[in-house]
């Protein structure tokens, strides 16, 4: 629904751009390079759709061997997956973990992003580098030592351990996402608030928090999406009771043969739909490019 909204939005932009549109179209028809580019994009999308579609079809298939489509449809795999994998519990855990990670990483990351975007102080680049490292390093590299430490303090296998592990890339991610939003707020506005007699706390709660709200929303949503999809760190630190959906999915896949493929696919579809719901929510607040880049796309 959000997607249609935004499409409507881009239509408006398109009509506003009317004078240039026909010119663009003409070039479009003339250039073979454009056809090639669009061909590649369409090829990519068709394969992507088939990839997701095959999972979807298989999850509803009664039996599917060596034919274009299965020879019958059923929803029994869903109920089976729901029961045999204890999906309700897994989903609840997933939501709890992601919610905690979002909340804590925002609480830690937003003030830090403010200081890093605004201030210069001795050792700033060192601090910034320390925040950048968890994003630049493969999760396995720091995940294994982290899991070891968590085992040492008997936190591994618990939900606390999973939350702590997922915070490691999330806090830096909040900081990086928030930085352009902080930079957008004119620092003179803070000065003006102080000249009006507002102290540090009042400046933050009355002036900055409302102005940074869009950025905080964006960062929160992005961390939510990433945490639900985060496999490695959760995999390394989770116990049987603290698995998130993606880890449960992995276990059911790697234990294939014990259960029917369709049952695994049903679980995959549940995971997919959860991600898509999150994605739709996310795209209400952020630009698609922002999901990968901290650069705000110019309109």
């Amino acid at each position: 629904m959000a997607v249609t909204d935004t499409l409507a939005g881009s239509d408006v932009a398109g009509t506003a751009d009317e004078p240039t549109a026909p010119r663009g179209k003409r070039r479009f028809v003339a250039s073979p390079a454009a056809w090639l580019v669009w061909g590649v994009v369409v090829f990519f999308f068709v394969n992507l759709a088939a990839l997701v579609g095959s999972v979807l079809v298989n999850s509803f298939a009664r039996q599917w061997f060596g034919t274009w489509l299965p020879n019958g449809w059923t929803t029994k795999w869903y109920s089976q997956a729901w029961d045999s994998f204890g999906l309700l519990h897994v989903i609840v855990v997933t939501l709890q973990v992601s919610g905690l990670v979002v909340g804590i990483s925002l609480l830690i990351g937003v003030p830090a992003s403010f200081v890093l975007a605004r201030r210069s102080f001795p050792g700033k680049s060192l601090v910034f580098f320390a925040f950048l490292l968890p994003i630049m390093m493969p999760p396995i590299t720091y995940g294994i030592p982290l899991a070891t430490v968590l085992y040492k303090y008997e936190l591994a296998g618990t939900m606390t351990g999973v939350v702590l592990a997922n915070l490691v890339p999330s806090v830096p991610f909040v900081i990086l996402t928030m930085t352009p939003f902080v930079e957008q707020v004119d620092r003179r506005i803070e000065d003006a608030a102080r000249m009006c007699g507002a102290g540090l706390t009042a400046t933050f709660t009355r002036i900055l928090a409302p102005l940074l709200l869009p950025g905080i929303l964006a960062a929160g949503i992005l961390v939510l999406v990433r945490t639900v999809a985060m496999f490695e760190l959760t995999f390394l630190t989770a116990g049987p009771d603290s698995q998130t959906l993606v880890v449960a999915l992995y276990y059911s896949m790697s234990a294939a043969g014990i259960r029917a493929q369709q049952s695994v696919d049903a679980m995959a579809v549940i995971y997919t739909s959860m991600m898509l719901v999150l994605l739709v929510i996310a795209l209400r607040f952020v630009n698609p490019t922002q999901l990968v880049a901290r650069v705000k796309e110019e309109q």
Partner: peptide, 30 residues
């Protein structure tokens, strides 16, 4: 800027958010 740019970028975001595990399952099937 062109019509449907947001659609293209939105669809492109899908595999990123789906993650590697689901992609793997899809590849196995497809």
């Amino acid at each position: 800027r062109f019509r449907g740019k947001r659609l293209v970028t939105t669809v492109l975001v899908v595999p990123i958010t789906l993650g590697t595990v689901l992609t793997a399952e899809g590849l196995l099937n497809y």
